[in-house]
């Protein structure tokens, strides 16, 4: 195993994960004020409607696909009687759908950010970093899932990329697994670590604040400014 492989497939992942975790803790503690979706809807709404909706719903589909494809070992679908070919069909079609949604949404979002001066004026440098990282991850991901499978030849990442990725989290890294996949898969894997590393410093942190607690909360909230007054009884 070469030093290069070790760097690419072991060191970079752990460094990125460390930045991801420490960065989030630090940002959350230090910077609640800028922890926001930083919505630009009131500056431009027509394009955002489709851009944001397609992009976010597509992203959730894509994230779901990654979880199924990478976190779940190949043996599980096998056990349910889904063979390699069947799995391939499902993953390529669902993956392509997700890819199309995300990509369409992302293109619309980028277009409106460049086209409308009001939106462009709110773009920060960290936004550019986030868009850059997302672009690489997205484009390589779509090429790998759809392009590669449809136009070149199918590749079963479940034998290499997936176990390598799981190995990182199980503290049992196997860099040699990653020397085999086609280049596009390698770049896609690396872009993921880039995305994780910049995540805590960009607006992407808004994703962790999805307000699910809203579903179970009373509508009207009161807060006390002062400690309760001590009254007659106690």
């Amino acid at each position: 195993m070469s030093a290069g492989a070790l760097l690419l497939w072991v060191v970079i992942p752990y460094v990125a994960l460390t930045i991801f975790v420490v960065g989030h803790v630090w940002r959350y503690r230090r910077d609640q004020f800028m922890w926001t979706s930083r919505s630009t809807q009131m500056l431009e709404s027509r394009w955002l409607r489709w851009g944001s909706t397609l992009f976010h719903y597509g992203t959730f589909l894509a994230i779901g696909g990654h979880v199924i494809g990478i976190a779940i070992p190949a043996a599980v679908p096998d056990a349910f009687g889904i063979d390699e070919e069947g799995y391939h069909l499902i993953s390529v079609s669902a993956g392509t759908l997700a890819g199309v949604l995300v990509l369409a949404g992302f293109v619309i979002l980028l277009y409106r950010r460049l086209r409308f001066p009001r939106v462009a004026a709110t773009t920060t440098r960290t936004d550019l970093v986030a868009y850059g990282a997302l672009t690489v991850a997205l484009v390589t991901g779509v090429i790998a899932t759809s392009g590669w499978n449809l136009f070149v030849s199918g590749y079963d990442y479940r034998e290499t990329v997936a176990p390598w990725f799981r190995g990182i989290f199980l503290l049992d890294p196997n860099p040699e697994l990653m020397t085999e996949p086609p280049l596009i898969y390698q770049i896609h894997a690396l872009s993921a670590w880039l995305l994780y590393a910049v995540w805590p410093f960009t607006r992407l942190v808004h994703a962790w604040s999805f307000p699910i607690q809203y579903l179970g909360r009373p509508y009207i909230l009161y807060r006390r400014r002062y400690a309760p007054a001590r009254t007659g009884g106690g």
């Binding site: 609640q32 004020f33 922890w35 926001t36 979706s37 930083r38 919505s39 809807q41 009131m42 808004h206 604040s209 307000p211 607690q213 809203y214 909360r217 509508y219 009207i220 909230l221 009161y222 807060r223 006390r224 400014r225 002062y226």
Partner: peptide, 29 residues
């Protein structure tokens, strides 16, 4: 207050003033 999914808006018990907690607001608008 009822529309804020983050629970960042509140009514003060003492004097009824309605405020936005700038630290809790996540910009869901």
């Amino acid at each position: 207050v009822a529309s804020c999914p983050s629970g960042a808006m509140y009514k003060r018990e003492e004097d009824g003033i309605v405020l936005v907690d700038q630290e809790k607001c996540r910009g869901w608008r």
